[in-house]
Design a binder for these strands. Sequence first.
RNA 1: GGCGACGUGGUGAAGUGGUUCAACACGGAGGUCUGCAAAACCUCUAUUCACCGGUUCGAAUCCGGUCGUCGCCUCCA
Length: 472
Amino acid sequence: MTLRLRDTLTGAVRPLEPLEPGHVRIYSCGPTVYGPAHIGNFRSFLFADLLVRYLRYRGLRVTWVMNITDVDDKIIRGASEAGVTIAEMATTWLERFQGDATALRMTQPDVLPRATEHIDGMVGLIQTLLDAGHAYRTDDGSIFFRIASWPAYGRLARLDPSQLRTTERVEADEYGKTDARDFALWKGPKPGEPSWDTAIGAGRPGWHIECSAMSMAYLGPSFDIHTGGVDLIFPHHEDEIAQSEAATGEPFVRTWLHCAHLRLGGAKMAKSVGNISRVMDLLEAGVSARALRYALISVHYRQGLEYSEASLDAATAAIERLDALVAGLEAYREEREDAVDLDAVLVAARSGFEAALDDDLNVSAALAAVFAMVRELNRRLADRAISTGNATRALAFLRDLDAVLGILPDQADNPSDDLPAGARELLDAREAARAGRDWSASDRLRDELLAIGVAVEDTRDGQRWRRLEAVR
RNA sequence: GGCGACGUGGUGAAGUGGUUCAACACGGAGGUCUGCAAAACCUCUAUUCACCGGUUCGAAUCCGGUCGUCGCCUCCA
């Protein structure tokens, strides 16, 4: 079985067959660094992360490129208001983005190219389009793509170009075009705006062309997978296809993957709606990063996802269930023969997990396979029906699957490093109190530990602790 | 107005013609274990899949209609 993915362009679910066998090239539309990304943005980044992690888990080589849009209207306006250069503004928010990404355990893309470092590539593409008659200049030095020259325009979004509404904003914004639906490849210079002097004249790049230029620079004229949120289908990705294929004459992307929106209060999470929630704000409010990651990835990527306190609470509880098992497996000691049938449990879990993810990344079904195994392992721990070696292997197996999910607690070399200040002393005191059967002292110390976020549980292997991933 | 997605229990959510088809998680009730807890385990928590009609031996699953929700139609992940 191989991974089958649903391509937005054709609507078909097809097996992934990389252009270069064994090597998958992926481009993801990344953040525009003019402010902090919200968790809706991160849903789409984490969906790409899950894809990349799964492909690597499956033994494929992956080259993952995620662009950084560091020049656009919002950045120019924001930098101007803050009295800094666009490069300074972009760097500030890029660092914030990377901090958020790290907190949410997003895999670091192999390349994070910045638009302003690829002006040459964009100019080259635009020149080619001009030479081929797919693009034209207007009086202000701008260059537009001529949609009428590209009959396939509208296929990705299933839009009929002749039906596109021409809004007032479009007409006002794009004055000078021969057709209101044409889109900007290059914007002529304006006072107060950054401008590059290039072979096609002075000015700055349009938004869409950067993704064509940067994907080609790192992945070639044709590559395997392009991801983004559904809101990028039109016009962004439609425009990318038109300008890329018109310039190279080759098919641009083999498989388009689009992630459905994250909703809050019933509406798409968007800055313009005002219903956004930011990663760092949530983390500072005490939300567990792992629970947030779980909440964002645990629903199929093409399914709309409503974010709420309740969804976060449920995610936190699920995470703690996993944590309790990990703590249980780590602490478990039983000198006995290995249980030979444990392998069957692990094999079943792996095959269920892989079959689910192979089916267009059905993560809900994959998690069901994991939790079925969790219950079985808990049962065997409770019955003391496996050996210490079995427990060690089961834990290693869980961590193997977690290479895809990224939701298990970190593997500390010395678990005590993870304890809050003073907790070690409280744990030692409690152990001593229990040895002396001083239950009131034992209970008091347990409460004190709980208050600093450490849950203590008594087992026949002695007292065992784990950090709580509580909300607030 | 055009195009598209979706509607499954208290909640989130798998399942897209029949062999457990109603997973899994959260929540709730009862029980076991425990010095007490916690965690864990066990039992229960949708004879039913928005509604109506149709196809079929058989439908949550296919077809038609109705209602509802959400998204896209040049800021957008």
